[in-house]
Design a binder for these strands. Structure first.
Lengths: 340, 340
DNA sequence: ACGCATCGTCGATACGCATCGATAATCACA
DNA sequence: TGTGATTATCGATGCGTATCGACGATGCGT
C-alpha cells in the first residue's frame, strides 16, 4: 500500500504538501497540485483511515444501533438501515453496526475506543435504559424515537400525533362517525415506545375537534384477538365501519378477518394502514395509507449528526424534530361525499 | 480520554508493559499485572482503535456488503445482517456497512483506506460484476452465494440443491406423483443468482430417482401469473396436486390463489414454502417448510473470515461450503400413507 | 531599487499503540 | 560463588497522517 510519503516522493514534494493538496487547508499552486494528483492516480493512493483518525481525532464513522426483535417489521428496519448508510456516504461517512444486544456497554465501547465519532440509536423506548449513558457520552448522539424525557437529547421521529389526526380527519371527511383504531401488536406496546401513545393522542384530538367517536381496540397477530376487536367495532358502529391499523403486521391479519366477515374494504368498510406506496399498490384492494416516511426520518437523522460533528462546539445540544406524515387515498377507503 | 501512557504512569510502569498486559504477548508478573489492571479500571481506559490499527495493521472490522432490492424479502436480509453483527462480536470484531450502491469501487475504497480487514458479500450473483475486483483485493473475502465460477473464491451458501431434493422426496413420499415448482419472482431470477438453478436441479434429480414428474412454472407477485401457473398444474396433475414455492413472496400469493380455487392445503393440495419456523406456525394453516438456515449460513460466514484473518497466510484461498437445509412437516402437506 | 506583505512549500512534531532489542533481576546448577 | 539460562521490564522506534512554525519566493507600492 502506498503512503502519502510515497506520493510525495513521486511528485517531488514534501509529505505535508500532499496532505494539504488533499485537505485544501492551505493554498497550493496549480502546478504542484497537478503533480501530486497525478502521482496519487499513478500509485492509486488512498489515505490510511487509522493514521488519519489518529492524527485528526476523527474517524468519519457513525455508529448505528439497530434493534432486532423478530416481531417487529424487519423489512422496515432494513429500510432505515439502508437509507442511513447511503446518506452517510453523501457526507463522506461510514456506518458501523452496533446491535442492541450489546446494550449500554456497547455504546461506551465504540465511543470509548473511538471507533466512531457519533451514534444514531433506532427504536428508542420511552424510558430507554441507555439514556443515562447516552447523556454521559461526549459525542453527538441522535435518537430515532422520542423518549419520555427528551431533555438534553437530540431526537427525531415521524410525527405520529399528526399521523393519528390525519387518519381520523380523513375518515371523518368520508362520512364515518365511529372510527376503530387497532393497537400495535403487544410486543411493540410492551416496549413502551411512545409513538403508540402519540398516535392515539392524535386520533383523540381530531375526534374531539370533529365530533366523531374513536374506539381503541387490541391489536396483535392473533386472528382471534383481531376477530374480537372487529366484532366489537361492528357492534358499536352506526353506519359504515372504519378501521385504522398503523401496525403493518396487524393490518395483514385485519384484512383476512374482514374478508371472513364478508366485508370489502372501500365498499362496506374503510381501512387505513401503514405501508410503503409500492406495497400498498400490490394489495388486492390498494390500501389507503398513512406514510410514516422512514426514508425521510433516516436522511434527517444522518444530516443532524453530521452537522453536529461538523460544528464540534462540544456544548450539550438539545433538539426535537418531527417529520410530517402523508396520508394517501387508495381504494380501501370510501370517497368523501361531494359538496360537503 | 486516558491513554496507555496515562495508565502506565498511574501504575508506575512503562507504556510497553501496559501494552503487554493487554495483549499477553509477553510474560507479566502477577504483581504488575494487578497494578496495571487496577489503573485501567480507575481511569476507565480503553485503547484507541485508530492507534491500534496503525501500529498493528489490523482494524478488527469486517465490511459487510448488503443488497437493497425492494422486491427481495428485506426481513430475511435483516436476519443475516443481525446474526453476522452479533457473531462478529464473539470474535471481537465489528461490522462496517457497505451498501451495494457503492458497487465495486466501494469495495476498493474500504479495503484501500484500510477501514476493514476483510469483506463479506451478500447476495452474490452468478456472474457478479464485483468478482474481478474481489479477486484482486489482497484481503480475505467471503461470498454468501455461489457464483458460476467460484475459482479462487471463498463461498458459502445454503445447499439449495439439497433443498430441492428434500422437497420433492418429501412430497413423493406423501404419495404425490406430479409436483409443481413455482419459480422465484422475476426480479430475483433476473439477478441470475444461481441458487435458483441449483434448487431446480435438485428437484429434477430427485424426480428422476423417484420416478415422479416435476413441473416448473412461472412465479411472481402477480396474481394472474400464479393463477395461470396453478391452473396449468391442476390440468397436468393426476391425483392430489402439490406445490413448492421457495420464494416467500410467491408463496403468499399462492396461498390466496389456492383459496380462491377452493383448495385447502393439507387436505386436497400439498404446499411447501420457505419461511422461518415462527412465521410458518403463524399461518392459518401451519406451513410445511424448507428451512434455508440463514442464521447458520451467517454464523459460518463470519467464522470463515475470522479464521482467514487469524491465519494471515496471504496465500490465495479457495473453498466452497454448503449448509444443509432442513425440511419440516406441518399441516400444509399430506401425511405419508402408512406402511409405505 | 528597497522594504513589506502574501503566497507556496518544507521540515518537524504529535497522535496512541505495538513491538523489538536490551537490560536488570531471578534462578538453577555446578 | 560463579556461569549461563530464564524471566520480567524498560526504552526506543515505527505505523501514516495532520498541522504548526518557518522560510524562500514573489508581487506590490513607493
Amino acid at each position: 500500500m502506498p503512503t502519502s510519503k510515497d506520493v510525495a516522493q513521486a511528485a517531488g514534494v514534501a509529505q505535508s504538501t500532499v496532505s494539504y493538496v488533499l485537505s485544501g487547508k492551505r493554498p497550493i499552486s496549480e502546478k504542484t497540485r497537478k503533480k501530486v494528483e497525478d502521482a496519487i492516480q499513478q500509485l492509486t493512493y488512498q489515505p490510511n483511515a487509522g493514521a488519519r483518525a489518529l492524527a485528526s481525532r476523527r474517524t468519519r464513522v457513525i455508529g448505528l444501533v439497530i434493534p432486532f426483535i423478530p416481531e417487529l417489521h424487519m423489512a422496515s428496519i432494513m429500510e432505515f438501515v439502508s437509507v442511513i448508510a447511503n446518506t452517510a456516504r453523501l457526507y463522506d461517512h461510514d456506518i458501523l453496526l452496533v446491535t442492541e444486544d450489546e446494550g449500554a456497554p456497547g455504546l461506551q465501547r465504540v465511543v470509548g475506543q473511538q471507533i466512531c465519532d457519533g451514534l444514531i440509536l433506532m427504536q428508542v423506548e420511552g424510558d430507554d435504559e441507555r439514556l443515562p449513558v447516552v447523556r454521559s457520552l461526549h459525542v453527538p448522539v441522535v435518537l430515532i424515537g422520542i423518549p419520555h424525557d427528551p431533555s438534553g437529547l437530540v431526537c427525531i421521529d415521524a410525527d405520529f400525533e399528526m399521523a393519528g389526526e390525519q387518519c381520523v380527519q380523513d375518515l371523518a371527511a368520508a362520512g364515518h362517525t365511529v372510527i376503530s383504531v387497532l393497537d400495535w401488536q403487544p410486543e411493540v406496546v410492551d416496549r413502551h415506545v411512545n409513538y403508540v401513545e402519540r398516535f392515539m393522542s392524535g386520533t383523540n384530538k381530531a375526534a374531539e375537534t370533529l365530533g366523531v367517536k374513536v374506539l381503541h381496540l387490541p391489536g396483535g397477530t392473533d386472528r382471534e384477538v383481531i376477530g374480537e376487536s372487529v366484532d366489537k367495532a361492528l357492534a358499536e358502529t352506526t353506519g359504515v365501519p372504519a378501521f385504522i391499523a398503523p401496525d403493518g403486521t396487524v393490518q395483514d391479519v385485519l384484512r383476512r378477518v374482514l374478508t371472513s366477515r364478508g366485508l370489502t374494504p372501500g365498499t362496506d368498510v374503510s381501512v387505513i394502514g401503514s405501508a410503503s406506496p409500492t406495497l400498498a399498490e400490490l394489495q388486492p384492494i390498494p390500501l389507503s395509507t398513512i406514510d410514516l416516511r422512514p426514508a425521510e426520518v433516516s436522511r434527517r437523522a444522518v444530516k443532524i449528526i453530521c452537522d453536529l460533528l461538523e460544528a464540534e462546539n462540544q456544548g450539550p445540544t438539545e433538539s426535537l424534530e418531527l417529520v410530517p406524515t402523508v396520508i394517501t387515498h387508495r381504494a380501501s377507503t370510501l370517497r368523501p361525499p361531494h359538496g360537503s
